[in-house]
Design a protein around this nucleic acid. Structure first.
Lengths: 226, 226
DNA sequence: TTAATAGTGTCTGTCAGACACTATAAA
DNA sequence: TTTATAGTGTCTGACAGACACTATTAA
């Protein structure tokens, strides 16, 4: 029986958020002391710290805290990428995680010097090292897919939002337009949001909109498509 | 910067099939020369062979060929299990794959000595080492979930089958009863199967049923639930 | 009063599901 | 002719989506 060398094993995080009306992904320059692609834009990632991480989910959270300084409420395993050739250093695996957060959480991060992580619209992500472009693509597909049958898109919004904002987010992530009335009825039937008593958003010269909030912090799944 | 030890990294395969009307999983006794749980029933699994495996999917196929002697057409990544405590030897990850095959492929395997792999109904899987029970559970959830919006359950059937058999499989994997007419109309609208001209199944004292086959070997996804 | 967006009442076409029917074989 | 299962025609209720309406604020 041959003793095979262990492949390198890393964790990469795809953090998705809304920024200026676009779905964006967080990219950070690789550390300048890195042995491969130093300074190049890439997904925040890192190795497992067997002493402090209880599992890969913990690794993902720690990596994101370290590279972007953000603690996120929602993190989900996306896929494990693997192969002989995805990393020039040899056989490797990367367990990718996806996080979906409202824009506000990152306001502090964005625009803090050239070394800081920044947001890039998913439609125009630059060329990334390894198979990171493929990872981003799969993350977006996952978000779009889950949007048809879950409350995942609500995580892109802040604590309170209007029905219009909610509809816009669903339309953006799904890439289709949903009739106003249909959307409202569906959302009300599903019960994924509840009105915040008495609070409304007055925006410009128009009737103010009712504020809503998620009924549950947890992800909710339903089975009919929009 | 500390240099962390690499966790152990294995691949486990959950092979699901129909056997005597029940959804079953393939379990094999661990090799008697194993350093941990020798002889215990477990999911077929193994380590990455960096010289022969191009990626983890290849590892999964090789493992299944080696442990059960079967080459399967359908294999899909399920989830990556990880943690400090899932393996008593220390920090480890296991990338689980799921395979869905018709019963016939395994007829040869089943019942060939005490060392051979065998099929166990998913409802009554014995206690397994590591977190293998959890892995099996997640595999079944995945199959059930995908059944609501894909042609995955057709992979549990042989090349040819009747509409009734197809409906029974969907009912079994989904755990609900689907009205005969509704099911037929849906399936015909989706176009995931086509009638095999002239061929019918005569079974007992009743009208023979039209044979159908998959229109495509690939998995087909649709968006309405049953 | 106008502009602009929020939210509602009502109709219509589509489709899931119920039900009752016809079809086709063996015994 | 009976039994058993395959497969079809038709009705009904639920609901998605269209459309036109009312509501509520600032300018």
């Amino acid at each position: 029986m041959v003793d095979y060398p262990k492949p390198n094993q890393s964790v990469d995080v795809v953090l998705l958020t809304l920024h200026q009306g676009h779905l964006c992904v967080l990219l950070a320059p690789r550390p300048s002391e890195s042995d491969l692609f130093p300074g190049a834009l890439a997904l925040p990632g890192g190795y497992i710290h067997t002493d402090e991480d209880d599992d890969l989910l913990a690794t993902a959270h720690r990596v994101l805290r370290g590279k972007a300084g953000v603690a996120v409420p929602y993190m989900e395993q996306l896929y494990t990428f693997s192969g002989k050739y995805r990393d020039p250093r040899g056989w490797s695996t990367s367990v990718a995680y996806i996080s979906v957060v409202p824009a506000l959480v990152l306001e502090a991060v964005h625009g803090a010097g050239p070394e800081a992580p920044r947001l890039y619209p998913v439609e125009t992500v630059p060329a990334l090292p390894f198979d990171h472009n493929e990872i981003v693509k799969r993350a977006v597909v996952r978000l779009r897919g889950k949007s048809t049958y879950s409350s995942l898109p609500t995580l892109l919004l802040p604590k309170m939002f209007t029905m219009s904002e909610l509809r816009t987010v669903y339309e953006q992530t799904l890439g289709l337009s949903i009739p106003k009335v249909t959307f409202r009825r569906k959302i009300e039937a599903l019960g994924i949001v509840e009105p915040v008593c008495g609070l409304v958003q007055a925006k410009g010269a128009s009737r103010p909109a009712q504020f809503y909030r998620r009924t549950s912090e947890a992800l909710m799944e339903f089975d009919q498509a929009f």
